[in-house]
């Protein structure tokens, strides 16, 4: 794992349960107990009603590609060695969209609407990064 050069998420109070679940290779979203709204990215207060009464809901880990780009230029450490890579928004079955990468697939084969499922990349002892790969047909 040493030599990992990309930015590493900084765990804080709001994001801790999310990253702890990822470490177990599970994807969890927040749901407001007062108004029922689902939200991503994780934060303490519901953006709909400001309630902090929050339930963590386990996601299926499946979704589809809402949009994507194949990145051919990024001078950033860690990324410049992996060009081209796919940056995407994934629309989860639960209805929220999250930014991620599409992996285990040739960039030319990626398309909008393609069904995908989460895979986790253990980048250090604390963080496993949720990314997505095409669902087997």
């Amino acid at each position: 794992m040493s030599g990992y050069q990309k930015p590493i998420p900084q765990i804080d109070e709001e994001s801790k349960p999310f990253w702890e679940a990822c470490k177990r290779h599970e994807l969890y979203m927040q749901k407001c107990r007062d108004c029922g709204t689902l939200r991503y990215y994780p934060r303490a207060l519901c953006g709909n009603c400001l309630s902090s009464d929050t339930e963590w809901v386990k996601c299926s880990g499946r979704g589809e590609i809402y949009t994507f780009t194949v990145t051919y230029q990024n001078r950033g450490a860690g990324f410049r060695d992996e060009l081209p890579y796919v940056l995407a928004y994934i629309e989860l079955e639960e209805g929220v969209r999250m930014m991620s990468n599409v992996v285990e697939c040739e960039p030319e084969k990626v398309s909008i609407g393609m069904p995908v499922e989460v895979v986790f990349e253990d980048i250090n002892d604390e963080i496993a990064l949720p990314r997505f790969k095409p669902l087997p047909e």
Binding site: K6, E14, T69, T71, N101, L129
Partner: peptide
């Protein structure tokens, strides 16, 4: 260029390598 950031939204974006062009491209 790489945008580093650990503020709440960015810790869920910067690990994936978004660039300015990439955002508009999406």
């Amino acid at each position: 260029g790489l945008r580093l950031g650990s503020e709440p939204p960015e810790q869920f974006e910067s690990p994936y390598g978004p660039t300015t062009v990439g955002a508009y491209a999406m």
